[in-house]
């Protein structure tokens, strides 16, 4: 298993949520390009890395640059919708990047190869973007900044302690654009094994409650 593409030391960068929150606020209120540059310098390299992890891209450099542009452009236009009570700056930007990655992939040739239309009349593809399927963080008293912080601490602490086989699969699912089925096929494991490893990891992080 090649894990070198992920940080070996598994150390989180310093938590600068407060700084990023104020940068986003300055972008929203003052159209402040210096603040935008700060956000860009920190997040664009992470977005580019995230784009590069998609397997079998025809033009990874072109795709990655496009994802950086499209994501950061949304950060600029949507800055006024950011609410630190609902999401941390990094979760907000990750969500934009993830939605944008899905949409760009769907519109690229990769999509045409992977999803052959079953019906001739399917050529008029639907207009749904990820934003139409996704639910923005909502106002509610069960999810506030405090809960958000607690969840983050819990995730961070348990992520570092996960057995490597579980962390490895989580990274494949979240970063490499692979579904459970695709991870199972790639690793030559039964789908049930992949499902149970993810489930074990989620249980340790208390993210999935047994119902």
């Amino acid at each position: 298993m090649n894990q070198s593409e992920y940080s070996e030391e598994l150390a989180y960068p310093e938590d600068n949520s407060g700084l990023w929150t104020s940068c986003i606020a300055r972008v929203a209120e003052d159209r402040d390009k210096a603040a935008f540059r700060q956000l860009f310098d920190h997040f664009a390299p992470l977005i580019k890395s995230f784009a590069y992890k998609v397997p079998a891209l025809e033009q990874p450099e072109v795709f990655s640059e496009e994802l950086v542009q499209e994501t950061m452009l949304k950060v600029w236009t949507r800055a006024s919708t950011f609410d630190a009570n609902l999401a941390s700056p990094s979760t907000w930007i990750f969500t934009i990047a993830r939605n944008m990655r899905v949409d760009l992939l769907r519109k690229s040739s990769r999509h045409i190869v992977n999803t052959v239309s079953i019906h001739a009349d399917d050529s008029n593809d639907d207009s749904l973007d990820m934003e139409d399927l996704w639910f923005e963080d909502e106002n509610s008293d069960v999810f506030n900044q405090l809960v958000q912080q607690r969840t983050r601490t819990m995730i961070r602490e348990s992520l570092l302690k996960l057995p490597s086989e579980q962390a490895f699969i989580l990274k494949k699912v979240y970063l490499e654009d692979k579904s459970h089925s695709e991870v199972a096929a790639e690793l030559g494991l039964p789908l049930g094994t992949v499902k149970s490893r993810v489930r074990l990891a989620m249980t340790k992080m208390k993210l999935i409650l047994d119902r």
Binding site: K48, S88, F94, I155
Partner: peptide, 18 residues
């Protein structure tokens, strides 16, 4: 919560310069 998990994994990546 799962999206928070995704964003934590996102932060653990090696950055790639644009």
């Amino acid at each position: 919560e799962l999206t928070q998990l995704g964003s934590e994994l996102f932060l653990l990546q090696h950055p790639a310069a644009p």
